[in-house]
């Protein structure tokens, strides 16, 4: 089963995503990080297959963490999670920096799983 790390400062979003991802029975949520800095640390210990990461977070935002994770491993599978997914520039920026896809909010359960399956 593929291991997923969820990175979001919102308890509500983390719980919502875990419910969708773990509920599919296809993925295991191995950890929750509250910001980009925590995500980088947890990456080194948990070695997740996929990281679902919010773009806007305190301490270190998702875009900065994405840059770092890609610099550490250019094959890293990061999916950005954002309510700004529909803003073309934000979507393009994330993809250009190495995100494998972008999950827009509000979540569509099937779409989230479909995106993770496609990685």
């Amino acid at each position: 089963m593929k291991k997923v790390l969820i990175v979001d400062d919102s308890i509500a979003v983390s719980r919502q995503l875990e419910k969708i991802i773990a509920g599919s029975g296809e993925f295991e949520v191995v950890g929750h990080a509250k910001n980009g800095a925590e995500a980088i640390k947890m990456h080194q210990t948990l070695h997740p297959d996929i990281t679902c990461m919010d773009m806007n977070m305190p301490v270190m935002d998702g875009i900065t963490a994405l840059r770092t994770l890609v610099a550490m491993n250019r094959d890293v599978k990061v999916v950005m999670v954002t309510s700004l997914g529909g803003v073309g520039d934000k979507f393009t920026e994330a993809i250009k920096l190495g995100a494998k896809n972008v999950i827009s909010k509000p979540f569509e359960d099937d779409k989230v799983i479909e995106i993770l399956r496609g990685l």
Partner: peptide, 19 residues
């Protein structure tokens, strides 16, 4: 179920690749 632009819609559905 969100406001999207056309390119994003196509990538989400695996109709075109991100590259």
């Amino acid at each position: 179920m969100a406001v999207k632009f056309f390119g994003q819609f196509l990538v989400e559905r695996n109709i075109v690749s991100r590259e």
